[in-house]
């Protein structure tokens, strides 16, 4: 498959000082859902804004659907749909009027626009409220309207910048459903940014992790996880001394402190290493209060590359423990 988007040393420096994007090179294939994952300020929105020609690059360029974003921005704009990070629909118009106006921007013939708008409204369950002023929409309804506002002209590429920012968990899952449906039914390449790991994991075929305006890693979620060599074993000991002894366990690739009396061991393969660790613990008469095995998650991938954790939803302690128990029993 051919690349539908390719950036070439794309760089953006704001006001001569803030280097938001630093020689970014990414390539996105036709038909895929591509996720840009990064912490706040990583440069995700900047990347999107450059690709949709909302701002101009400081240096470098990108080819979007065969058109250069610098030299041929009008053609780029015609072939893409955008759902920006902030709201862009007009509160003083109805949902239908907003979509109608957007369709006119793209010279969609009136009949075709009408049909398409109705189809899209039905797709995101907004047909009941289409004649209400957007001012009266709930946050979730408004986000759904924003989502389809980027689609009325049947674009080849859809950019979604933080499509579920500020939504509650249920609404967010619902949005995911809509995004998947759009991708299946409308045959569009989707570029998605998010700092919710679950979101990117759930929606994207391929992911790039970016931070400080640079790509740190690219691949499918599975590839990224398996590139992280090793599993993690977390142990909490009864005394500091016991913890120190466990830190010296010879089979670990890496051993770290992980809180008071807690140890984080990285091992090649937890299934083989766990019995040996248990032997080591009883052999040295250590007292252990808790033992957990973790297969790497996207969180760990993220942590590995950015040095930051951006987990946004901490599982409650009991839930975590039950998960741990289940893992140990396997």
């Amino acid at each position: 498959m051919a690349a539908i988007i390719e950036t070439r040393n794309l760089t953006k420096i704001y006001g001569g000082k803030v280097k938001a994007l630093d020689d970014l090179n990414i390539s996105i294939e036709e038909g895929e859902v591509y996720g840009l994952l990064g912490p706040n300020g990583a440069g995700k929105t900047t990347t999107i804004n450059l690709l949709v020609t909302r701002i101009a690059p400081t240096s470098g360029t990108a080819i979007v659907n065969g058109f250069d974003i610098v030299k041929n921005s009008l053609e780029v704009r015609k072939s893409i749909g955008v759902v920006p990070q902030d709201l862009t629909t007009d509160e003083d118009l109805s949902g239908y009027e907003n979509l109608k106006m957007v369709s006119q921007f793209y010279d969609v013939p009136a009949e075709e626009a009408k049909e398409r708008i109705h189809k899209l409204l039905a797709m995101v369950s907004l047909d009941d409220v289409k004649n209400r002023l957007v001012r009266q929409y709930s946050g979730g309804m408004r986000k759904r309207l924003e989502l389809i506002a980027g689609l009325v002209h049947d674009p080849k590429i859809l950019f979604l910048d933080e499509p579920t920012l500020g939504l509650d968990v249920t609404t967010r899952t619902q949005m995911w459903k809509y995004v998947r449906e759009i991708q299946e039914k409308l045959d569009v390449t989707i570029i998605l940014t998010s700092h919710y790991l679950e979101e990117v994991d759930a929606l994207a075929n391929r992911i790039s992790i970016i931070d400080h305006g640079k790509v740190l890693a690219t691949g499918t979620s599975e590839e990224l996880k398996s590139n992280l060599k090793g599993d993690i074993i977390l142990a909490t000991m009864k005394t500091d001394k016991d913890a120190e002894t466990l830190m010296k366990y010879p089979g670990a690739i890496e051993a770290k402190e992980n809180g008071p009396r807690a140890v984080r061991l990285k091992v090649q393969n937890s299934d083989e290493e766990l019995p040996k660790i248990i032997q080591y613990i009883s052999g040295n008469s250590l007292s252990i209060t808790r033992l957990t095995v973790q297969k790497p998650t996207l969180d760990d991938v993220f942590l590995e590359y950015t040095g930051n954790e951006i987990r946004t939803e901490e599982p409650t302690d009991t839930r975590q423990e039950m998960m741990n128990l289940r893992r140990l029993r396997r």
Partner: peptide, 9 residues
């Protein structure tokens, strides 16, 4: 709203 206008052709 201006953002929507600026990304339109």
């Amino acid at each position: 709203v201006l953002g929507r206008f600026l990304i339109a052709p």
